[in-house]
Amino acid sequence: MNASLDKIYFDYAATTPVDDRVVEAMLPYFTRQFGNPSSVHIFGQEAEAALEGARETIARLLGVSSSEIVFTGCGTESDNLALRGVAFERKLRYGADRILISPVEHHAVSHTARQLADHFGFRLEFLRVDSFGMVDPDYLQKIIDRDVAIVSVIHGNNEIGTINPVAELGQICRNYQVPFHVDAVQSAAHLPLKGLEDWCDLAAFGAHKFYGPKGVGALFIRKGTPILPMLTGGGQENGIRSGTQNVPYIVGMAKAFELAQTEGLKIHASLIQFRDRIISSVQDNIKGSHLTGHPTLRLANHASFVFEGVDGNQLLILLDAAGFACSSGSACKTGDPKPSEVLLAMGISPPLALGSLRVTVGKYTTQEDVEKFVSVLPLLVHKIRKMSLELKGR
């Protein structure tokens, strides 16, 4: 799938193209069946039927009750609702004021937790991670107590691909009756999630990570989990998230999730083959390269590295010019590149962290795409290092 001339897309962790079947499922709800699901007439009834059908689909695939699915505007909103809603409610009810997160969370979680600490009197504490960015369950067991409002841990890391032991972490939280939230935005496209209520109380999803539309998400909220609504108004979504539901996008999300959790899991073998080909080629052909994240317990489509003596932003620019769309862990669009917080938390030095590269494949990636990439990348890394040496020699 080369949407832009001869460009090759290797940034599936950032977003995915919408599957044609998802577009087809959405189209009627933009035009013929356009009603507001809160309206009582036939137009509203049709929209409500589509809305609840989508909710049933997602709930069935997760093995939960449809009443435990709340639709939101995106994965970020789902994370925000989970952290803020549960933290405020548990503080009001029980005085619980500690928030435990890992230092390798997506900013949707880490920035939300930081704001709760800076402005609302919560105490933010970070769980320990190892050199692969994996959370240590023993450390959670050591510091958790009933005064914890919520624990939040990313399932499959968006930057380094590491898959966390969420079932073990969730059981520890349940033993202390502390709500456990999982950011499943990345993992929904690659890991089976049926039965997640056995190990978590909340889980966030975003449709555009699994070939659905941008601008729609969902939050699983296990029955009985205390949560304060963050959007008030008409009382939609069982009063948890007011606002007229985006029916076309919700229908699209349900279709995309169904595809991801059924046929999507069948393409894992090819994704892993492409991923491992990239990893082995980099390790064999580029000196001073280091794989980031766990070598095996990582998302099927995810390869990430740091390179000694390389500016990650400069590498992205050269890759883009060569026809490859990849990403980096540094803040490459701010004009003020900073080392990735995730990489620093794993013990990687700031200079090395600035040389990061994330390569994520997807269901439209081909073997030819991968072979072109692994033939070009070593040349570009060498070019950057040579330019750097020449500048130092002036």
Rank of each mutant, 00 (worst) to 15 (best):
F10I: 11
V64C: 11
G239T: 02
G309R: 13
L81D: 02
L193K: 12
Y94D: 07
G233S: 10
T365A: 05
Y211C: 13
F34A: 12
R222C: 10
H106I: 12
L344K: 08
G309I: 11
H382C: 14
F324T: 11
I58D: 01
A3L: 14
S110N: 09
K142I: 06
V64S: 09
G293S: 11
W199T: 14
F30L: 15
M1Y: 13
Q367G: 15
C173Q: 06
E56W: 08
A325C: 00
R394K: 14
G156E: 01
G75Y: 01
G224E: 08
I160Y: 00
D118G: 00
G224H: 12
I58R: 01
A3I: 13
H190Y: 13
I384Y: 07
L124Y: 05
N246M: 08
I227M: 11
I163V: 15
T334A: 13
V18I: 15
A303Q: 02
G161R: 09
E105K: 00
P28T: 09
I8T: 13
A25E: 01
M134H: 02
S131L: 02
A269M: 13
R394E: 10
G44S: 04
T360M: 06
R128S: 06
V104Y: 02
W199D: 08
N164D: 04
E48S: 11
S304Q: 03
V166M: 04
G95W: 10
A3E: 09
G63A: 07
L219N: 11
L51E: 09
A269T: 15
V148I: 11
V370Y: 04
P103N: 04
R60F: 03
G121P: 01
I250Q: 07
L5Y: 13
Q141R: 15
H119V: 14
L61V: 05
I163R: 09
R385A: 11
V182R: 05
L116F: 03
T365I: 07
T31R: 00
N301K: 13
H155K: 11
M26W: 07
A184E: 02
T292N: 05
N175G: 15
L81A: 09
K194N: 04
R275L: 10
A189H: 07
S152V: 03
A325N: 02
V251R: 04
S67H: 13
R123G: 03
R60V: 00
T232H: 10
V23Y: 00
R21E: 10
A3V: 10
E105P: 04
F274T: 00
S375F: 01
L83Q: 14
C74Y: 07
L127G: 00
S280Y: 07
P226R: 10
V282G: 07
P28A: 05
F205T: 11
S242T: 09
P137L: 08
V153S: 09
N2S: 15
